[in-house]
Design a protein around this nucleic acid. Structure first.
Lengths: 153, 153
DNA sequence: GGTTGATCTAGAGCTGACTCTAGCTCCTAG
DNA sequence: CTAGGAGCTAGAGTCAGCTCTAGATCAACC
């Protein structure tokens, strides 16, 4: 047992995960950790590499919009141990769907932005080409040509 | 002038945009509309098709995480009329960046999920193949094999 | 005339995810 | 021995983005 499983303080974990110490305590209180965070002398939290690994997963899932309750649910299942893989699968598949939906929306948005950016670039280009400084058209009503969703390259 | 530019009540707009009437009033108060929403008899809001079109754009931008203040800023620029295309371009490019960043994160998350789903599917598959009902292994500590970011197909 | 039902305004309330504060305990260095 | 810094707990505060409520108005139908 010469394994010195590096233990980390809350500050160190904050530093290497990018979460704040506040957030770490908050996550703990929310039951996001698989194993209860151990305590060292003086009641201080002691984190293991496993904790950090788990947090890394949590951070990715959070970044993709998984709500904390779902994260807790997942942690609960993992904590329970083998035998509930179906539930974990369900949870992951649900999130998979959320994420793909989101990807769709983002892509649609990217279409829109690309379209708008193109329009404005053309406009500015044209302006520049057309004449020297100070040449203003009567103002296009509202916004440039309407974006028709699905009209992207 | 035989153009009967269909006018819509707040309820109708809510219905066809999917926003709540509350949200519509809130957006208006937040200055998200390009032209002030007109009022009909009795002070009731009267929306035009243009308003709905604009809302459609707003909804897409919101869905991709553009904050309301940015939306307002954009509306301000459009309201001002031609001449500020550079600013609009900047705004859009900024959002473009946010969106691509987000797309990256989501993709990373999708990798993770796909990996986990694969693991659980294999596990369940194996279990099913291995024997009839009730056969439980001593419990895999923590979670299945760690996910190494960037290990996806 | 009475009752819906949609709207209106102003403002309070809610949710999620943190973030911050106060007051206290430790540990370490000078 | 004391000063500083990191940590602790409990709980309050914040922010975005809505959502809901109350109390009033108004048009339309029975």
């Amino acid at each position: 047992m010469a394994e010195v499983t590096a233990t980390l303080s809350i500050g160190q974990v904050a530093e290497r995960t990018g979460l704040s110490v506040h957030a770490l305590r908050f996550y703990e209180q929310q039951g996001v950790f698989v194993s209860p965070v151990r305590r060292g002398p003086g009641g201080r939290r002691v984190y293991s590499q496993d904790d950090v690994d788990w947090l890394t997963v949590c951070i990715i899932l959070r970044a993709s919009g998984m709500p904390l309750p779902a994260l807790r649910r997942y942690a609960d299942l993992v904590r329970e141990g083998a035998g509930n893989e179906e539930e974990r699968l369900t949870l992951m598949r649900e999130h998979h769907e959320r994420v793909t939906t989101q990807l769709g929306q983002l892509t649609q948005c990217l279409d829109l932005i690309t379209f708008k950016v193109g329009v404005y670039e053309d406009l500015l280009d044209q302006e520049r080409r057309e004449a020297g400084p100070d040449q203003r058209r009567p103002s296009v009503d509202g916004d440039v040509p309407a974006f028709r969703p699905g009209t992207s390259a």
